[in-house]
C-alpha cells in the first residue's frame, strides 16, 4: 500500500485506505519523537520548503520539526503580504522556489485553492497547510489520529464540532475525514457562521449547544478569529461565550469519557473555560504531538510515491 498521489490537498480527495495508511504510519512515527535522538535519516538530502503566506506558528513549527526529524533540510519562507502586492505573481514565487530544487512545498495561504493551483503547476509535492476556508488536511488527520487513539475506532462516534464553521478549514477537513468512517457529525454555531449547503454533506446542524452535546463521544471546539466579531457574525464575544462556550456543566451532557479537542490557540473563556481545557477530558496537547507524527507520515509517504 502506498499513497498514489503527488500532493495532499484535501481529505475529500483521499480514500479511506489512504487515510488508514497515513494514520498507521503516523502511529509508528510517534515513537521517533520520544527517542533521545529524535531523528531518523529517511529524508536525508530532501528539501522541504514551508511557504507560508499567512502567519502561523503551530502548523509551521510542526511541519518544520516533522521535516527535521526525518533529516530533511527545512527552509521557512514567510510572506505575510500577498505576493501580488510586490508585483510577483503567485506562480512566479512558486517557480522561483522550485528552481531551488525543492522536494516538498508546504503551503498556507489565505485564499482557498492556492495549494491546488500550485500543485497543478509544480513538480514538487505540495502539502496544503491550510488554504482560506477550504481545507487543513494535516489538522484533520491529526484529529482523526487523536480520536482513534483514545476511542480505539472512528466508526459510529458522535462528534460535535462547535464554532466558526463558515471560515473553518479545520472543520471542513475533520468532517471529510470523519464522514469516511461513518461518524455521526453534529455542527453547532450561530446561523451566521454556518456555511450554506453544508447539511448536504450529511451532517446535522444545531444552533443550540446543549441539544447537540447529548451523548457526544467527541467535542471539537474551533478557534474563533476574534477580529470577526466586528463583521456582525455575532453581537459580542460575551454573548458568544454564553451561547457556545464549553464549560463543565455543558460537558456533563456529553458521554462521561467524551474527548475535548481544540486546534489551538485557545481563546480561554470564549470557546472553552480553562477548567475544561485543562481538564481530564482534554486531549488538546496530545493533538499537538500527534500533529508532528502525522506530518512526518505525510512527508515520508509522499516521498515514496515519486519514483517512476
Amino acid at each position: 500500500m502506498e499513497l498514489k498521489r503527488k500532493d495532499i490537498l484535501s481529505l475529500s480527495d483521499l480514500d479511506r485506505e489512504e487515510i488508514d495508511l497515513i494514520l498507521q504510519t503516523a502511529d509508528s512515527f510517534k515513537e521517533v519523537s520520544t527517542r533521545e535522538i529524535k531523528k531518523v535519516p529517511a529524508l536525508r538530502g530532501k528539501t522541504v520548503i514551508n511557504l507560508f503566506f499567512e502567519p502561523s506558528t503551530r502548523t509551521r513549527t510542526s511541519f518544520e520539526l516533522a521535516g527535521k526529524r526525518l533529516s530533511a533540510d527545512v527552509i521557512n519562507i514567510s510572506s505575510t503580504g500577498s505576493s501580488t502586492v510586490k508585483g510577483e505573481s503567485l506562480l512566479d514565487t512558486a517557480r522561483n522556489i522550485e528552481a531551488m530544487h525543492s522536494d516538498f512545498i508546504i503551503v498556507r495561504h489565505a485564499s482557498s485553492g492556492v495549494p491546488q493551483f500550485l500543485a497543478k503547476s509544480l513538480q514538487s509535492a505540495v502539502i496544503n497547510a491550510g488554504d482560506g476556508a477550504h481545507a487543513h488536511p494535516s489538522q484533520g488527520l491529526l484529529d482523526l489520529l487523536t480520536i482513534k487513539e483514545a476511542k480505539g475506532t472512528l466508526e459510529g462516534l458522535k462528534v460535535v464540532i462547535v464554532g466558526d464553521i463558515l471560515h473553518g478549514r479545520v472543520a471542513h477537513s475533520d468532517i471529510h475525514g470523519l464522514l469516511k468512517y461513518g461518524a455521526d457529525i453534529h455542527l453547532v454555531a450561530p446561523p451566521t457562521l454556518i456555511p450554506i449547503g453544508i447539511e448536504l454533506w450529511g451532517v446535522t446542524v444545531h444552533y443550540h449547544l446543549d441539544e447537540a452535546l447529548h451523548d457526544a463521544d467527541v467535542v471539537i471546539l474551533l478557534r474563533l478569529q476574534l477580529e470577526r466579531q466586528n463583521t456582525a457574525y455575532f453581537p459580542t464575544l460575551r454573548e458568544y461565550a454564553k451561547l457556545y462556550g464549553l464549560d463543565r456543566r455543558r460537558l456533563s451532557l456529553a458521554k462521561e469519557d467524551a474527548l475535548v479537542m481544540h486546534p489551538g490557540p485557545i481563546n480561554r473563556g470564549v470557546e472553552v473555560t480553562s477548567e475544561v481545557a485543562d481538564g481530564l477530558s482534554s486531549v488538546i496537547l496530545k493533538q499537538v504531538s500527534n500533529g508532528i507524527a502525522v506530518r512526518m507520515a505525510l512527508l515520508f509517504l509522499l516521498s515514496g510515491g515519486k519514483n517512476d
Partner: peptide
C-alpha cells in the same frame, strides 16, 4: 525502514512497523 539506503530508489515503500 527509515534507515534504508535505497529509500529514494524504491517504487513502493515498505510499510513502517514499530520500533520498540
Amino acid at each position: 525502514t527509515l534507515y534504508r539506503d535505497d529509500l529514494a530508489a524504491r517504487k513502493e515503500y515498505p510499510t513502517l512497523k514499530k520500533t520498540d
